[in-house]
Design a protein around this nucleic acid. Structure first.
Length: 472
DNA sequence: TCTGGGGTCCTAGGACCC
DNA sequence: TCTGGGGTCCTAGGACCC
């Protein structure tokens, strides 16, 4: 699809080999036009190899994701007119459930619909073609759409599923990659028909419960997976492969900060926050390790994510240089929902302070002392920063002391409510001198009630991890 | 030839709880 | 003295997809 968009947008590329992907040293091919595929170039191939295989007139292009996204969107809009139930799988693939609307589901009817759709796709995209597979399940629709690309139309009529499926090589099945294929070949299983002759016990033995039963069913064309629209994201991540392996710890920290900022930016634009921070490190020899840490509360604070990521990186030996660095956030929640959870849990534990903060209960603290202007409400308001005077630290507002710092002394909420340290959830503590504390309100939900005050009694704050304590 | 970037799902083992 | 059974959560790694 990337190559098709490039050829659409640049007349001189039509009919010529086009390779889209990482053009620099360690890049790989994302897509090759059919002219380039004729020379053996294909997706996931190292670009260096593609350059050797492809002829001199080949265009090597960096991806223009914005252009592909625009093209994708007009097609997806078209699909949503066919049926309200559309599951977008990637930028260039989607399942459409034709059975939820009053479509004519006879074979001639479906062929007619598909032909019309293909014509419309070509029109709205300005000449990019699409392939369609129509069948009684996702499995077969997908396999059908892969046939006769890039302008194919395959309909598998009801009742002919097995006749269609069984002669195909096992690698055609979704979920059968190189590892599974190899294992099957080792036992002489090459076609889907062969696979249908293997017992469930044996498949579970080879591949585990989930994968084994999945293969058993797919080989029999048993697939009742529904078409699901609007699936929620489970993780957000960013990673980078360096041109040359990086050893310099200062550079690594900087890269980690940049990656964390990218992740958090996307997190926030989706209104999300996460409880788990992950890092990924790939060494020069391609061995890859991951490290993760899970907090009690979701965050979308870039500095906190970066700081946790740095702590995780410190657990990994990078002295030999690393090839790739990645940062991710998972166990996602959107803030409002999480606040309700926090509130419910805190209330259960009798922690009324956290409960009130989480639920934004107004008038909860009638006696609260007002020390600063109440922070603004709303997702777009900048996070207010409250800096306490030196001495016994005073922390302001319903945001509470937490983050990488540990509160050493007892924390007292003025009206006499005791707050346990573990329950001090959101907020960010920052400071350089003893007893000097800065609290930043965190997250899109700013407190809307009166600002409440509590004090951090003697001896102020103490860093949890000295090297991280000095925040720039 | 020398291996991207963004994701999803599964498994196994350990900690912890009742 | 000898050691359960079930469940949840977390981490690390791997397979797979586009």
């Amino acid at each position: 699809m990337f190559a098709a968009v490039e050829q659409r947008d640049k007349v001189s590329l039509r009919g010529k080999p086009v390779v889209v992907g990482g053009v620099a040293g360690r890049g790989v091919v994302a897509t090759a036009s059919y002219e380039a595929r004729a020379f053996g170039v294909h997706s996931a191939m190292p670009m260096a190899r593609a350059r050797r295989l492809a002829p001199l007139n080949t265009a090597f292009l960096s991806p223009r994701f914005a252009a592909y996204k625009r093209t994708s969107e007009v097609v997806m809009r078209l699909l949503s007119e066919v049926s309200p139930l559309v599951e977008q799988v990637s930028i260039d693939e989607a399942y459409v459930d034709l059975a939820v609307t009053g479509n004519d589901l006879s074979v001639p009817g479906v062929i007619e619909l598909a032909r019309r759709l293909k014509a419309e796709i070509a029109v709205v995209t300005g000449g990019v073609t699409g392939s369609i597979g129509a069948a009684s399940s996702k499995l077969l629709a997908k396999i059908g759409s892969d046939l006769n690309k890039p302008d194919g139309l395959t309909v598998i009529p009801p009742g002919e599923e097995l006749a269609f499926l069984h002669p195909l090589p096992v690698s055609r099945l979704g979920g059968v990659g190189p590892a599974t294929e190899q294992r099957l070949h080792r036992s002489g299983v090459r076609s889907v028909g062969d696979l249908a002759g293997v017992s469930l016990d044996l498949l579970v033995d080879w591949f585990g419960t989930a994968h084994g039963t999945g293969l058993f069913r797919l080989a029999r064309a048993q697939d009742d997976r529904p078409v699901v629209s609007d699936r929620e994201a489970k993780s957000v991540s960013a990673e980078e492969t360096f041109e040359v392996d990086v050893t310099d710890p200062v550079r690594l920290k900087r890269e980690l900060d940049l990656l964390a900022a990218r992740v958090v930016g996307r997190l926030r634009s989706g209104g999300l926050a996460g409880r788990t921070v992950n890092i990924k490190v790939r060494h020069g020899d391609f061995t890859t390790v991951t490290r993760a840490v899970t907090r009690d509360h979701p965050t979308d604070d870039g500095r906190l994510v970066a700081q946790l990521a740095r702590r995780l990186l410190a657990e990994v030996d990078t002295s030999g240089g690393i090839r790739l660095l990645g940062v991710g956030v998972s166990t996602l929640a959107d803030f409002a929902q999480d606040d309700l959870f926090t509130a419910a849990r805190a209330e259960q534990q009798g922690d009324l302070f956290t409960a009130a903060r989480a639920a934004d209960v107004e008038g909860f603290a009638p006696d609260a002392e007002l020390v600063t202007e109440p922070p603004e409400t709303g997702a777009d308001s900048p996070a207010p920063v409250v800096e306490s005077p030196p001495g016994p630290a005073e922390v302001t507002g319903p945001a509470v002391v937490a983050g990488p710092a540990v509160v050493a002394g007892p924390v007292v909420w003025r009206p006499g409510q005791d707050v346990r340290h573990e329950e001090l959830g959101a907020g960010w503590v920052q400071g350089s001198g003893l007893g000097r504390v800065t609290v930043r309100f965190e997250g899109p939900r700013r407190p809307s009630g009166p600002v409440r005050t509590f004090a951090v009694d003697d001896p102020g704050l103490r860093p949890a991890d000295p090297p991280d304590w000095t925040v720039p």
